[in-house]
Simulated assay, not measured.
Amino acid sequence: MEPNYLEIGKRLQEARKSANMSQQDLANLMNVSSSYVKNTERGGKPSISYLFTVANNCSVSFDWLLTGTHTSLDLKQIPNSNEETEDLLDNLRNILNTADPDIRIWAKVQLQKMFGEYLPAKK
């Protein structure tokens, strides 16, 4: 699954406008030029730092920025069979093995946020 940067850019712009921020306001938060913000909103590849800044300052989720959907925990959707669990793990492996390093980093950060307390400490 390759990210659709044009659609991501549209959502970045929508989030910024919903937060009543100008491109310059967002650029100032990140210490980048307003042309960088304009480029990402037109479909340029955003950095992970940029996505964090928008998510944190515009009250949107990474899920929505990257996919356009909001996700929430629905207990009815939690896998309850070995086949469903294997499908879920296959999807996770695909995300973590994607060629795009930004997506891999994003996935690792999200997993750490969600399951950090259950993961073994690094030595």
Rank of each mutant, 00 (worst) to 15 (best):
Y5V: 06
M114Q: 14
L89Y: 08
E117Q: 13
Y118L: 12
L96R: 12
D63A: 08
D74T: 08
L96K: 01
Y118T: 08
K122W: 00
M114A: 15
V32Q: 14
R16W: 05
P3N: 11
F62S: 05
T53M: 12
A99M: 00
N80S: 12
A27N: 09
R93W: 03
G68L: 05
E84H: 11
S22F: 05
V60W: 04
L119Q: 05
V37W: 08
S34M: 15
G68F: 08
S35H: 14
T67A: 03
G44A: 08
S22G: 11
W106H: 03
T69A: 10
G43R: 09
T40C: 15
T53V: 10
S59R: 14
S81F: 08
D102K: 10
S18H: 11
S47M: 03
G9E: 11
I103L: 13
K108D: 00
F62H: 15
R93C: 01
A107K: 03
V54F: 06
A107I: 02
P101C: 06
I105D: 03
S72T: 12
N28I: 03
R42C: 08
H70E: 14
E14C: 07
E83T: 15
T85S: 11
S61G: 04
S18L: 14
L92K: 01
A107D: 00
E86D: 14
S59L: 11
C58Y: 12
K10V: 03
A15E: 03
L66K: 00
D87L: 10
S72N: 09
L73T: 12
N91W: 01
S33Y: 13
I8Q: 09
I103D: 01
H70C: 04
S81H: 11
V60A: 09
Y36A: 12
M21L: 15
L96I: 00
F62I: 10
G116H: 09
E7Y: 03
P3L: 08
S81D: 15
N28D: 13
A107Y: 00
Q13D: 15
G116T: 05
A121D: 02
L73K: 13
N4E: 04
D87I: 02
P79V: 08
T69F: 07
I105R: 09
K10N: 07
F52I: 10
Y50R: 09
S34Y: 11
N91T: 01
N57P: 06
G43V: 04
A121E: 02
P46V: 03
I78K: 12
T53C: 07
D90T: 05
T85R: 15
F52W: 06
F52C: 09
R11I: 02
N80A: 15
Y118N: 15
S59H: 14
D87M: 10
K76S: 15
N28M: 08
P101H: 08
P120G: 00
